[in-house]
């Protein structure tokens, strides 16, 4: 049986549709999130409090001054972690509850494009927050950055973000499949990662095997490599060499993106077979 009736308005397909979907879904993150001014408190003021606490502790015990810079960079990266946790991993659950998930599924787009849009929008919004934290922290605590290799720094940051948001895309399907209480899982993951990923201290002091285990979270190696590249004494406090960390981040990026694709397909299949995942509160 073939359809004979065509729709009458021009609609893009293929890569144009993919791109439009990415931009369309990124839009609420880029524009909408800025309208809720509470982010200034929760995403700037709160991380700044944590940064202040660690800075005062390090200064009180006479730790090397580089540690202050480590803390500021770590504090800035919390913006990305919070975004991935609360606005990526939990997001498909919220979309389901809101009634958006079924509308996303019945649209002729790719669900990967939806997730990518979420990720890019979140990345952009978090980047603004991270930059503000870096600027504020640097001004308040007189931190000086000396970049030893701009290209490597760019590669490390890019790969860290790809791997981190890839992980967020993957866990968004996982959270949806595992539990109705997605925010409990997010809460559970928030604080331990601050510790094991070394947000406020050099990861090498966790010990080799624990640090290797923690490297599954892309921020662990990303932070370590960035610190090595922006502080003169960073290399002496680094866990692995920057090229090795870049190689691992590259592997994580591929792993998480493939994982996101496969889990999303599985989630869609399950949604259609069982019909449970597209139900909302109505």
């Amino acid at each position: 049986m073939n359809a004979v009736i065509q729709t009458k308005i021009k609609k893009n397909t293929g890569w144009k549709l993919y791109l439009q979907t990415v931009i369309g879904r990124a839009y609420p993150r880029v524009i909408g999130q800025q309208r809720e001014k509470s982010w200034i408190f929760f995403e700037l003021f709160m991380p700044m409090l944590a940064i202040c606490a660690y800075v005062f502790v390090y200064r009180a015990i006479g730790a090397p001054e580089e540690y202050i810079g480590f803390v500021v960079v770590g504090g800035a990266m919390t913006a990305f972690w919070l975004n991935v946790l609360w606005s990526m991993s939990s997001q498909l659950y919220w979309e389901k509850e809101q009634g958006n998930l079924s509308l996303y599924i019945i649209a002729p787009n790719s669900m990967m494009a939806i997730l990518l849009g979420m990720a890019l929008g979140g990345l952009f919004a978090s980047l603004l927050r991270a930059i503000v934290i870096i600027l504020l922290g640097s001004l308040l605590f007189n931190v000086t950055f000396t970049v030893s290799n701009f290209l490597q720094l760019f590669i490390v940051f890019t790969l860290t973000m790809i791997a981190l948001y890839g992980m967020g895309m993957m866990t968004s399907s996982m959270f949806l499949l595992l539990s109705r209480e997605a925010w409990h899982l997010a809460s559970l993951a928030q604080e331990p990662v601050y510790l094991i990923s070394g947000f406020y201290f050099p990861i090498k002091y966790l010990g080799f095997w624990l640090a290797i285990g923690a490297s599954i979270i892309p921020l662990t190696l990303g932070l370590d490599a960035m610190r090595q590249l922006v502080f003169p004494s960073g290399a002496t406090l680094g866990f692995l060499t920057v090229p090795v960390e870049i190689a691992i981040l590259l592997m994580l990026s591929v792993l998480f993106l493939i994982g996101a694709y496969l889990l999303l397909r599985y989630m869609e299949k399950l949604a259609i077979q069982e019909g449970r995942l597209t139900e909302n509160r109505r």
Binding site: T13, K16, Q20, G24, R25, Y27, G32, R35, L103
Partner: peptide
Amino acid sequence: LLTVRENLWMFTQFYG
């Protein structure tokens, strides 16, 4: 957080 126009625009993008 989006306006009526923005919400509608967003959904049209998913249809190309």
